[in-house]
C-alpha cells in the first residue's frame, strides 16, 4: 500500500481498499467518491456502519455534495450494515457478493452508467460470526466488479485494524486509495482534502514543519479555484505558520478564493494579522470546543 492512488484515479472495474486515519478523513474521501460517482452517471451505493443513514447524508451534504435530487431519483442509496454485511446477524461472503451482483444488474436496468459501491468496513472490527470469510469476500468482490461498469471501494481504518488483517485485505484489492499526505507523525498530519478540495491540517504545528505545509498549499493553489484550508482539528500553530498561510492567501490569483476553517484561537491570530481583511479570503471559526 506504499503507492496509494488518489480518489480521482478510480475507474469502473476497480476494487479499491481505502485507508484512513480518522473519521474526518474517511468522510472527506467518501464525499469525493460519491461526488465523482454521481457526476459520472453511476448509481452510488453507500453502506454505512458507524453513522446512521441520516447522519451520513448530513455529513456528505455538509461537504458540499448535493444529495436531494439524487436521493429522490434513486441515483444515491444508503444502506446499513444490518441490511447488507450482517443481514441475518452474521457475515456470509456468498450472500453479500450475490447482493452486490444484483445491485449491479439493477443499476443497469434502472438506466445508470454503472454502480459505485463504497462500504464502511468497521463492522469487521466487532466479533462477528463469519468474519473468517472476509478475505474470501474481498477476493470475490474483485472478480465481481472486474470488467463491469461497477466500482467498489472498501473503507478500512488503518489505526483500528491490526496490521495482519490490513495487509491481507490490501492484497485482495486491485489497489489502495488514501489521502495524499504531506506530513504524518504523532503530533501533526497534513493531507489533501478532496471535498471540498484543499488541505487539511490536524494536531499542532510550528516553524519546524513550515516546509511540508508550504508544499501542500502550493500544490492546492495550483489545483483549486476555491481552496479550503481545514484547520478544524489543529490545536496549535505558531506565528511562522500563520505567516505561511498569510503569504499563501496574499498570493491568490484574481479568480481564486480561499476559505479557512479553524478553532477560536487560530481565528484570533488570523484576525490580528489581518487575514479576514484580504479580498477573496473567508475565515470561519468553529465554536464547538
Amino acid at each position: 500500500m506504499a503507492d496509494a492512488s488518489r480518489v480521482e484515479d478510480l475507474r469502473p472495474g476497480d476494487h479499491a481498499c481505502l485507508t484512513f486515519s480518522d473519521g474526518e478523513e474517511r468522510l472527506d474521501l467518501v464525499a469525493a467518491i460519491v461526488r465523482d460517482g454521481l457526476r459520472s452517471g453511476q448509481r452510488v451505493l453507500c453502506v454505512t456502519d458507524t453513522l446512521s443513514q441520516v447522519a451520513l447524508t448530513g455529513e456528505l451534504t455538509g461537504r458540499g455534495v448535493a444529495l436531494g435530487n439524487v436521493t429522490d431519483s434513486g441515483q444515491m442509496r444508503v444502506l446499513r450494515t444490518a441490511e447488507t454485511f450482517l443481514a441475518d446477524g452474521s457475515f456470509t461472503a456468498q450472500r453479500v457478493v450475490d447482493l452486490f451482483a444484483a445491485q449491479i444488474s439493477q443499476a443497469a436496468t434502472d438506466g445508470f452508467s454503472g454502480l459505485c459501491i463504497t462500504s464502511d468496513m468497521s463492522w469487521a472490527l466487532r466479533p462477528v460470526a463469519g468474519l473468517d470469510q472476509l478475505m474470501n469476500y474481498e477476493s470475490r468482490l474483485t472478480d465481481l466488479v472486474a470488467d463491469t461498469n461497477a466500482t467498489a471501494v472498501c473503507q478500512y481504518d488503518r489505526h483500528s485494524f491490526d496490521t495482519v488483517t490490513l495487509a491481507g485485505v490490501a492484497a485482495h484489492h486491485g489497489f489502495a486509495v488514501a489521502a495524499a499526505t504531506y506530513h504524518d507523525d504523532a503530533f501533526l498530519r497534513i493531507c489533501r482534502q478532496y471535498q471540498p478540495p484543499g488541505i487539511r491540517v490536524s494536531g499542532e504545528i510550528d516553524y519546524r514543519r513550515a516546509e511540508p505545509l508550504t508544499l501542500a498549499l502550493t500544490e492546492a493553489l495550483a489545483l483549486d479555484d476555491h481552496m479550503y484550508l481545514n484547520l478544524a482539528a489543529l490545536d496549535f500553530m505558531d506565528g511562522s505558520i500563520a505567516g505561511v498561510i498569510m503569504q499563501a492567501a496574499a498570493s491568490l490569483g484574481g479568480n481564486q478564493r480561499m476559505t479557512v476553517r479553524c478553532q477560536a484561537h487560530a481565528g484570533k491570530v488570523f484576525h490580528a494579522l489581518g487575514l479576514p481583511d484580504l479580498s477573496n479570503v473567508t475565515v470561519v471559526v468553529n465554536d464547538d470546543q
Binding site: 505558531d238 511562522s240 500563520a242 505567516g243 498569510m246 503569504q247 491570530v269 487575514l275 484580504l278
Partner: peptide, 17 residues
Amino acid sequence: RPEPSASGGRGLWLVLH
C-alpha cells in the same frame, strides 16, 4: 503589523500584540 506577503516578523509582532 507585517504585510500579508511579508516572509517573517509575525511571531514577535504577535507577542507584542
